[in-house]
Design a binder for these strands. Sequence first.
DNA 1: TGGATACTGAACCATACAGTTCAGTATCTG
DNA 2: CAGATACTGAACTGTATGGTTCAGTATCCA
Lengths: 121, 121
Amino acid sequence: MVQYPTARLDVSFAALSDATRRGVLEQLGRADASITDLAQTFHMTLTGMRKHVGVLEQAGLVTTEKIGRVRTCRLGPRRLEDETAWIERYRQLWDSRFDELDKLVDELHWKENVHGPKSGE
Amino acid sequence: MVQYPTARLDVSFAALSDATRRGVLEQLGRADASITDLAQTFHMTLTGMRKHVGVLEQAGLVTTEKIGRVRTCRLGPRRLEDETAWIERYRQLWDSRFDELDKLVDELHWKENVHGPKSGE
DNA sequence: TGGATACTGAACCATACAGTTCAGTATCTG
DNA sequence: CAGATACTGAACTGTATGGTTCAGTATCCA
């Protein structure tokens, strides 16, 4: 059984669970931005935005660098590989689980066809 | 620009941000289970587990059905399509963003080669 | 130098969340 | 019927989250 970096998934999924933070990632996907830029986009105080950026940094999704007065934010090193991997595996489970259900349904149909009221189509 | 179902992403990413809940999904991927089953697996009270299952239900990742005393939990209708789509798009942004950076680096190299310390300036 | 700009840290607030206990209700089983 | 089982709802605890204000510090620019 593959072991996923559980704690890391906790923080990155949590980071993604906020619309503002997802928006920040999208904006940074277009161009680097300062805290002020981001705060303006999302109509929020600098302090508030700084916290969101902090969460994204913790998750490795954003890196920042302060030059002079300005902290510039850019997309970070992580590319959501583990998150994608987890979801992919989940989908496999999901598919196989529903295949099983399909089989059950088929079986029921078969029984119905053999023992049911209208045995010939 | 494609519009993602923001509120839905909020709740499903939040649902996934807890290791216990991800574990529940994995267990249900193997077989349906009662609240008692799940609570035992994760060493938790029934009440505690019921809450987690509630969160997963809200996110559409689990459905439950109570028959007699027993509430049976199974994987729900949602297959994390939207979540995958969001992450996919993010990866595209990430890639293009880093292509841009690569281009910048190339440009710097070029300038260095032309104007660098050894060739003039 | 002095004023505007960009950020930071501390403190605070309201709400949500993960978990518990406890006191039920409803259902099975002998 | 009695007792065990499976769950539920309310209430409580501690901690995290999303947001604010306010009082700074550091930097830039005229």
